[in-house]
Design a binder for these strands. Structure first.
Length: 278
DNA sequence: AGCTCTTCCTGAAAGC
DNA sequence: TGCTTTCAGGAAGAGC
């Protein structure tokens, strides 16, 4: 499932191929895939792609026509992918939109999303600012240690906070589990009770894990792959996600446990003791 | 304020 | 073997 690293890899591949391309056509297969702005679909024809960026787990294509900018926001949700023609999918009927370009060297991009958690939005400048202000907190890759520490000054449990997009945008279940294990912090520790050392460590580990995952092309769990069809290699470096019952990779003698009551938290009860806030 | 529950949706896996 | 049920999971909204 695409989280920050997968969305970042997707945005980079699209950026490399599409910036400067002129939109020939944009087709949406089913209207309910649109969250906002679907009636403005026709505007995009004849516009030029000026940028492709990532915000949180979403990919944003910026288009320009006659000096005006509009944005195409693809929420990837659980199963959403943006793909070039070279990438094959098992269930082609779940392609919900196709963006194509005038020059033959520009590959068309299709939005494929079997479960349809996640939508497309077509926004003007004001709509885009409202959309991003409402949805995205700070970016985990660029947030400073001070900003991060301020964010943790609350009574919320740590893992849900890390996954709360309006607070920190981009971390999902897989990377939250991996970051917490590598930080030695229990998923349910109260964020505001972390010592300054623990906050510092968490901040560094968060950025290191996400950067390493981006360098690996993301994690291919179930059906993720990049626009060109390549798989993410970070899955091979997962230490706890999906590994309940296996011995702790720290060789502490503990066994990776999965919390039943929540959305699969994988952790080592010995290395991530909730009484340790340091 | 912050947590839990429900809804959305489809394919995989488990159950019978 | 083949059908039915359950589950997974991100985000939003309701309710506590």
């Amino acid at each position: 499932m695409p989280e920050l690293p997968e969305a970042e890899v997707t945005a980079r591949q699209l950026r490399a191929r599409l910036v400067g391309a002129r939109v020939a056509d944009i087709r949406v297969g089913r209207p309910d895939i649109g969250r906002e702005g679907l009636p403005s679909l026709g505007w995009y024809v004849g516009s030029t792609v000026r940028a492709v960026d990532r915000r949180g787990k979403s990919v944003i294509v910026t288009c320009e026509k006659a000096g005006a900018l509009r944005y195409l926001v693809a929420e990837l949700g659980m199963t959403g992918l943006l793909l070039f023609p070279s990438a094959e999918v098992r269930f082609p009927q779940h392609t919900h939109a196709v963006l194509s370009f005038t020059e033959a060297i520009r590959p068309p991009v299709r939005y494929w999303n079997p479960r349809r958690f996640g939508r497309l939005s077509l926004l003007d400048g004001d709509g885009f600012r409202r959309y991003t202000a409402r949805r995205f907190g700070c970016d985990p890759l660029t947030v400073t240690r001070q900003e991060f520490a301020r964010l943790l000054q609350c009574r919320r449990r740590l893992k849900p906070l890390l996954m709360h997009q309006q607070s920190i945008a981009g971390i999902g279940n897989i990377y939250a589990n991996e970051i917490l294990f590598r930080s030695g912090l229990h998923p349910n520790v109260i964020a505001g009770r972390l010592t300054p050392d623990a906050v510092d460590r968490l901040h560094k580990v968060m950025q290191a894990v996400l950067c390493e995952a981006i360098d690996c092309g993301g994690s291919s769990v179930k059906d993720y792959f990049a626009p060109d069809g390549s798989e993410g290699r970070y899955k091979a470096r997962h230490l706890v996600y999906g590994k309940s019952g296996q011995p702790c990779p720290n060789q502490c003698g503990g066994v990776i446990r999965r919390l039943q009551s929540e959305r699969s938290s994988f952790y080592c009860p010995l290395c991530q003791n909730r009484r340790w806030n340091v």
